[in-house]
Design a protein around this nucleic acid. Structure first.
Lengths: 330, 330
DNA sequence: AAGTTATGTGGAACCGATACCACAACTAGA
DNA sequence: TCTAGTTGTGGTATCGGTTCCACATAACTT
């Protein structure tokens, strides 16, 4: 592998001049610039990122933490972040936390060792005070998930509103016995709590009391959804509609319901969250709450680069529109 | 951020000794090892990977190229590779080629600059002679996709057999008018060609001639599948069954067919490929050919590490089982 | 007892880039 | 014409590790 010294030697110039050409510094004559460029091409030279990272500050790499890429929502989010980043000349380093605190910390350490310039977190496992301690090594921001303190820039959706319009839609369809599936455990802060609030608000506004038996927590996958439906079938007093925190769980419910001979939405109305591809694949197609993934990615990169260029930037939240997509499952 | 010198100073020893402790070298007395460990903990020291990469050889990082992570098949493949890698103490660096030759080359360059120890390619965009030129900088292997020369270790499935058993299944169900969707263009080598052969073999064995009007190339997405169905509907002489190169295309066909009032499998039998989650979500559930993603990931890492440890290793192919999953769409 | 070999430690060069500093040459203003 | 500023170039220290080499001491051989 050719090094900067090889290029310097071949072009008959110094390493400094070569470095200036690489980095588009001023004060290099056109003639020597040409010489360097020619030598670089001839040798197939590529600067060694390790050396640059070690010496310089900027790595032009942004880290993105997701819980798991097999979740299509996050796959699409990564995708949109990467697209936006590459337009700005940044690379993206993907890390999966697998919902594990230690894995998350391991990834945050990339900031310490200057492997990435900044980190976009799409989920948080550790408490904020743990994460915060890494902030001195580089900017950290949140996209999708959030904490309810103004500690870092956040790209967020109004989850309260999302859950509210979803629940409201069910109420407008005439339902009063509404079940609720959430991904989090009890979620003292962040997405889960806000959705809970939106859901509760919609119901209490029309005087519906929530039946605690119809609350399902820690539901994530299609399998979880199937299991929820089975539980519902065993109840004497069954809900007529169900609000879920993800299209996958909703999908599981729809699939299992059909297997058991239920008609959707007549026997059970189901509403999802995210507007993932699965929502259109299901039969009946899923009514869901759309999260604008592409916008989220774009905005994240925009804000991240702003932070990188101006570390003293004011911390603020960016709220993106959330929208109800009515299809056939309600 | 603490450096090795800080640790050396605090423990009252030399950088050399600290380095030996980090790397588990012999010839360090227990007493000094303890001192170093204590100092490391006290400072929250983490070795800087850039510095290690720059000087040393090993990066304990393996690169994986996929076309795009939003394709669930590849998301799962990455996932299984990452799981296996992390068990062996390796990290994984994910690169998306977006089916673009230049992006693929850019990723291969990580090998040149010692950012990764080796690369696992799950798809190939460039000709092998382009890719081969990077082989001198580190091991390259193929997983999923392959070329028909014994140039690099390959983890592959017998695609010919896969297509053969799929087509055969349709024939056994009584179909003689069978359409064919493939992902590749004309695919002079690799997966596409082998599948074509398997498909042709099954048909010609029972004396069926292929109708060129029923061959659809370059089909990848759900949308593509919908489009294929519309084309079929416009034909005077329609196929009664269709073999597709991916569950997504098959899914699109199923969805569009239902919209047009066709009954599957009565009016049209559909068979997919990959056994992705979508196969079980669809209604009717998709008959498909399963690729053992978890096995593929495990085996890839096993072989990659073997290559890293023994560069002179014999090049061979590893064939994994492929299997027909019969559900409701045929 | 003298000569090997095994064990333990530190100094310093080195990996490949960047950036500070010194200096040369040229341009412009007074 | 002289000083001050602009433009262009190279030498060298530096980033944070690893590794070669020299050297010291302890443990075995004959």
């Amino acid at each position: 592998m050719a090094t900067i010294s090889d290029v310097a030697k071949l072009s008959g110039l110094s390493k400094t001049t070569v470095s200036r050409v690489i980095n588009n510094h001023p004060y290099v004559s056109d003639k020597k610039r040409e010489q360097v460029l020619k030598a670089m091409k001839e040798l197939g030279y590529i600067p060694n990122p390790s050396a640059r990272r070690l010496r310089g500050q900027l790595t032009t790499t942004i880290g993105v933490i997701v819980p798991r890429i097999v979740n299509p929502f996050f796959a699409h989010l990564i995708n949109s972040i990467e697209q936006a980043a590459s337009e700005k000349g940044y690379q993206v380093l993907i890390g999966q936390s697998y919902e594990d605190k230690e894995k998350e910390v391991a990834f945050l350490n990339l900031l310490k060792t200057k492997q990435v310039d900044g980190i976009i977190m799409t989920s948080t496992e550790n408490d904020w005070n743990v994460i915060e301690s890494y902030n001195e090594y580089g900017p950290i921001m949140l996209c999708n998930d959030y904490v309810n303190q103004k500690v870092a820039p956040m790209i967020r959706l109004n989850q309260t509103k999302g859950a509210y319009i979803g629940a409201n839609h069910l109420i407008e369809r005439g339902h009063r016995k509404i079940a609720y599936c959430t991904g989090g455990l009890f979620d003292e802060q962040g997405k889960g709590k806000d959705r809970n609030q939106g859901f509760q608000k919609a119901l209490s506004e029309v005087g519906i009391k929530i039946n605690p038996k119809w609350i399902f927590i820690d539901q994530h996958t299609i399998e979880d959804g199937k299991h929820v439906l089975r539980q519902i079938l065993e109840m004497e007093d069954r809900p007529t509609a169900i609000f879920t925190g993800s299209d996958e769980v909703a999908g599981g419910i729809v699939i299992a319901a059909k297997e058991k001979g239920l008609i959707i939405p007549k026997d059970l109305a189901v509403i999802g969250f995210d507007d993932q591809p699965i929502a259109e694949i299901l039969d009946p197609k899923l009514t869901t709450i759309r999260q604008p993934v592409d916008l989220m990615g774009e905005k994240s990169i925009e804000v991240m680069i702003e932070m990188l260029e101006n570390p003293e930037m004011e911390i603020r939240n960016y709220e993106l529109p959330i929208e109800l997509i009515v299809r056939q499952s309600t």
